[in-house]
């Protein structure tokens, strides 16, 4: 039964392409429905700054041509789709000669590195905490200590970030308050640089792990409690299995299934960055870039980031669809 039939894979990949196409189209349509003309708005901003701009009408025309806004909508749409497919996201409106794809290419590795590690740590620690909270045999001292770890969940991201910077960067001076790596280091695959990246990434990572851990822990706790009432848990105990075996192979193994779905979705969302954390720590990732795009009303940049976010999430969902049968044998492709 089951197995990755070609038909199933094709359908999933088809769904993936459809999602990305729909996302791209929505990104294309929405700004064009919005009132106002971004180029005119930009030129008038220039006018406001320098008092008078010569040939403003020609300038608007030239910029329109440059951004491909002069043709009819279907030509624009065709050009847009073609460039999106080649990951050509065009020029940034606010910092003109820079290209959006280059800006994203610079920011993406930082975000992926920081958030992937933080989310995965948070996933493992959070699920373990949740599972232990629900388990009847958890020793009393752990049980007493666990809920305290979750109180941090109710502190917002940014508050905890500021608190951490205050304590560990300004107070104890253990970690740097901002940035992603030390100055004067050669960027590349060398040990001093990697060490510096880990050093700079610690505080932002901690603030993400600590504040998102509770989400995993509470979900896991609920699943474990539901699962504990199942007959196979009673049978596992009746079999005289060691408590650890019952906990891992029967309890956690079954409770983790919905959590994995949520993990895939949040890993997909990572591409969009964590705006607040990156802003507070001045971390040069996608979230910080999105913040800059919003502040500078840089539509093309925002569009680019949203597109990457859509592509990331739908890719994660695709991978989840293809990998899920490995962790839950009940999912088969026969019904597709």
């Amino acid at each position: 039964m089951g197995g990755l039939t070609p038909k199933y894979v094709l359908r999933r990949v088809g769904m993936w392409l459809l999602t990305i196409w729909l996302g791209a189209t929505i990104i294309f349509v929405i700004p064009r429905l919005a009132p106002g003309d971004p180029v005119a708005a930009m030129v008038s901003r220039l006018t406001a700054q320098s008092g008078y701009v010569e040939n403003s009408a020609q300038m608007i025309e030239a910029w329109r041509a440059r951004f491909g806004l002069d043709g009819p909508w279907y030509v624009q749409y065709y050009n847009y789709l073609r460039s999106v497919l080649t990951l050509d996201l065009g020029f940034s409106l606010a910092s003109f000669p820079s290209r959006v794809d280059e800006m994203i290419a610079q920011a993406l590795p930082w975000t992926l590195g920081l958030l992937t590690i933080a989310v995965i740590i948070s996933f493992f620690v959070g699920n373990l905490v949740g599972a232990l909270m629900a388990w009847r045999r958890t020793p009393g001292w752990i049980r007493a200590f666990l809920p305290a770890t979750l109180t941090f969940t109710s502190i917002p991201f940014f508050m905890l970030g500021i608190l951490l910077i205050y304590l560990f960067a300004f107070g104890l001076r253990w970690f740097p308050p901002s940035g992603a790596y030390g100055r004067g280091l050669e960027i590349g695959f060398n040990w001093p640089f990697i060490k510096s990246v880990i050093y700079y990434g610690t505080l932002p990572a901690i603030s993400i792990v600590v504040t998102s851990m509770g989400f995993w822990a509470l979900g896991m706790r609920g699943m474990m409690i539901t699962n504990d009432g199942e007959d196979y848990m009673i049978l596992a105990e009746a079999k005289g299995l060691a408590p650890q075996r019952v906990f891992w192979s029967y309890g956690v193994r079954n409770s983790i299934l919905p959590q994995v779905t949520a993990l895939a979705l949040s890993l997909g969302g990572i591409a969009g960055g964590s705006t607040l954390v990156e802003y507070i720590f001045a971390y040069p990732g996608m979230g910080y870039l999105l913040y800059l795009g919003i502040v500078n009303t840089d539509y093309t940049l925002i569009q680019g980031i949203v597109f990457i976010l859509i592509a990331g999430t739908s890719t994660a969902v695709l991978l989840l669809d293809l990998l899920y049968p490995l962790i839950d044998p009940r999912i088969t492709y026969s019904k597709g």
Binding site: D231, L235, S249, L257, R330
Partner: peptide
């Protein structure tokens, strides 16, 4: 249904 572990 539930007396056997579904993922084993």
């Amino acid at each position: 249904m539930n007396s056997l572990n579904p993922v084993m």
